[in-house]
Nucleic acid binder design. Structure first.
Lengths: 245, 245
DNA sequence: GCAAAAGTGTTGTCCTTACACCCATGC
DNA sequence: GCATGGGTGTAAGGACAACACTTTTGC
């Protein structure tokens, strides 16, 4: 390794006052927006409100809020989930930051998009301010701000992630049939899957617990109900699996 | 679908003045930090400077800067790359936002981490302020701020991405031997690969162009030199490839 | 008994892995 | 001629994809 003459950092050039340095930076408003996925009627849905900005009257908007002073980003996202759905202990993951200068009509606002997956049945919505409701992803066209773009990015993120990790179980009831599970995968990936191969796949993973219960109130032969074995699934990262460009 | 009584958004409640709304949000300083990967001497390296904060004297720091007013996040990252390396048209991807309240000693600063891959040979570093230099990832222990955590996240991101997309070519010279390519993958993934299978794999992908040139100045049988066929690689997203938990 | 979905195995193909020998060049 | 890495093929095993019939339940 050849030595290159460098301009070193001399002690007298060091910045002593970090607070003053940070004070000199431009500041921007920072928000968190949650893309909350649910699954109902064999459709992937998102929890949305109607925008309360006159400019976006009638348009759907993500659940978001500004990040408070001294609040972790993740904590802000969990707070929004808790405030809106009453749930904690839900799946949550940061997806991407959006910061186009013109993405908000009120001036520049940076937002960090979070994805959350939750089971619609597990709780009735307690609050219905701003027409909070589950909206089918397929029917979702226009949205306020750049929220449609954020939803698209999160949906692609979900499609990818669900093939690598068993996220889907967060969207289902504790006990579910294999048909429900397959419907979920088909809805998220937008494809149809072979039933036998699908069942074989999950059987071979050995991550489903047979509850010895059956579906109730179905107008056909009832299927077995399973639980996901969260304990057994202690993440095993994949190694060299080839390059699937 | 059952109808639920909702608190609707009434026209008189709509917010007319978006600017005023945004003005009421708390504001935070926003920076971009670039994790710039390079490959040299069969080692994965990162382009770093020495921190100029007295608190972190002698410690390595990522290349970062605050995001300017009306500057896109991506643009800020490209600007930093350009200022520090003189290069544009390099690979760049947003990885994650870091926003712990205490991550910066001067007060809360949000940073968006970007990953960049570039070929060390393609340019000599023009500027050596703050001892700008390539540092081997393996030897990197302590860093200023939470930059080690950021590096770790970006490295994991790289390991994953390089198995799904042909990113590695950004780290190599335009013309390279298969051995160099394999060394790169082995260095990034931290594993050894079977030479025959590795070559078969890339041969079957049919994305390498034989330049009909050979290595020069090697003390053994010279290998063929290839170029990556960027044109042919118009991304083909993978479909249902099973669930590899 | 009919509709609707549950449940179940086999086969062919492809991909991945493991593995060993000769070749070209510099010294 | 020796050291170093270049270059090549094959066989076995595992994963995936395609495919049809019988069973159970509600009505």
């Amino acid at each position: 390794m050849k030595k290159i003459p460098v301009k070193a950092v001399h002690p007298e050039q060091l910045i002593q006052d970090a607070v003053q340095l940070v004070r000199s930076y431009p500041k921007v408003p920072l928000t968190v927006d949650c893309v909350i996925f649910g699954f109902e009627e064999n459709k992937l849905k998102i929890l949305l409100i109607k925008s309360d900005l006159a400019l976006y009257k009638g348009k759907y908007s993500l659940l978001g809020d500004f990040v408070r002073d001294n609040e972790e980003l993740d904590a802000a996202a969990y707070r929004i989930l808790k405030e809106r759905t009453g749930m904690d202990n839900v799946f949550l993951d940061q997806v991407k930051a959006f910061g186009s200068p013109a993405r908000h009509p009120g001036g520049r606002v940076i937002t960090i998009a979070y994805c959350s997956l939750l089971n619609i049945q597990h709780h009735a919505l307690k609050i219905h301010d701003n027409e909070l409701n589950w909206v089918s992803l397929a029917s979702l066209k226009e949205m306020a701000f750049d929220h449609k773009e954020i939803v698209d990015v999160c949906y692609q993120w979900l499609q990818k992630r669900i093939q690598e990790h068993p996220l889907g179980f967060n969207l289902l009831p504790e006990k579910f049939s294999l048909r429900e599970l397959q419907n979920l995968y088909e809805a998220i990936l937008g494809i149809t899957l072979d039933r036998r191969n699908f069942r074989k796949k999950f059987a071979s993973m050995d991550l489903l617990i047979d509850t010895n219960e059956m579906e109730q109130d179905v107008s056909h032969r009832p299927g077995k109900l399973y639980k996901f074995n969260f304990e057994k699934y202690e993440k095993s990262k994949r190694k060299w699996v080839g390059i699937d460009f």
